[in-house]
């Protein structure tokens, strides 16, 4: 524990800016993953333990696309679309078979997929770590904001994820499909009785959720390294976000993801050994005081 270092950091604008932007990056990427988890849970009442795998696949597909085409935009697009497709296949061929069965059966199916694809990635891309490197467009000197160093890619990243958050929430509240999704979250039988094709709807939800995770993986690839099993820690964190924010709440996921990002950003200065511990303590306190999460509805 190093509270003096934390105190010094909090009183220096440079340190605050640096830590806050890195915290925001972590938070916004986490939001993309957790938004998928919470969307899928909200509509299908399935806790998707394989969501980390989507994130990983998004990163790897983007890595290969960038190597082949040299275009980061194409890389992000292909990573997103590939995982969206993967989400649909996963839902149609595996998850749809365990709807309504024990939660543990769903966990088992998801974990099997995690195991299989960790090894598939090892076979295709090798067990070693890969670094994507900064896309050429962002290989420019960093900006200095109030004395803090901020790479331009970070700003682009925060901008893109914020845009997605807005599109997602507007899409859910304004568009017809978004309204159907929200209705299905409340009463799927009624939605189905009203003539909505829920099979298609569920596949779409998995496509969007999976695509968001793949997008997060593709966006994170330049700042983090790629390795088989990289989905594991992201999965745990996105669950924490979902629980703290409230299962099924997109706004809750955003707030909780930013909260965790900032705790990570500043926690590494104050409690370098115990940042994870801080986050688990936060989760325990929330579960005890407000089990439904910050923005969740009491069931």
């Amino acid at each position: 524990m190093d509270l003096t270092a934390l105190g010094v950091c909090l009183t220096t604008s440079a340190c605050v800016v640096t830590q806050a932007t890195s915290g925001l990056i972590v938070g916004m990427l986490l939001f993309l993953v957790a938004a998928g988890v919470t969307l899928i849970f909200g509509v299908l009442k399935i806790v998707n333990f394989a969501h980390g795998t989507f994130y990983m696949l998004g990163g790897y597909v983007a890595y290969t696309t960038l190597n082949v085409t040299d275009s980061y935009a194409l890389a992000v697009l292909s990573g997103t679309l590939a995982t969206a497709l993967f989400g649909v296949l996963f839902e149609r061929f595996l998850i749809s078979r365990v709807y309504g069965s024990n939660v543990l059966m769903q966990l088992l199916v998801c974990y099997a997929v995690v195991l299989i694809f960790d090894d598939v990635v090892k076979i295709v891309w090798g067990p070693e770590f890969h670094a994507m490197g900064m896309p050429p467009a962002f290989q420019v000197p960093p900006l200095f904001i109030a004395g803090g160093v901020v790479p331009p890619f970070y700003i682009a990243l925060i901008g893109i994820t914020a845009l997605i958050a807005i599109v997602l929430s507007l899409g859910l509240s304004m568009t017809r499909i978004g309204k159907t999704v929200r209705a299905a979250a409340i009463n799927p039988q009624m939605v189905s009785a009203l003539g909505v094709n829920t099979t298609l709807l569920f596949a779409i939800v998995f496509a969007v959720g999976g695509g968001l995770a793949g997008l997060a993986g593709a966006l994170a690839a330049p700042v983090r390294s790629l390795s088989p099993g990289m989905g594991f820690s992201v999965l745990i964190e996105s669950f924490i976000v979902t629980v703290i924010g409230g299962m099924g709440s997109i706004a809750g996921a955003l707030v909780a993801a930013l909260l965790i990002g900032l705790v990570r950003g500043f926690g590494t200065i104050g409690f370098p050994q115990f940042t994870d511990g801080l986050i688990y303590i936060m989760m325990i306190i929330i579960l005890l005081l407000r089990p439904q999460g910050l923005f969740g509805r009491r069931s």
Binding site: S101, L115, I116, I123
Partner: peptide, 20 residues
């Protein structure tokens, strides 16, 4: 060395096939 791949397929067979 691909233990996860095999274990995953076995688990899937149990979970989707037997369902218990």
């Amino acid at each position: 060395e691909y233990y996860g791949l095999v274990l995953g397929i076995v688990i899937l067979a149990f979970a989707v096939g037997l369902r218990r």
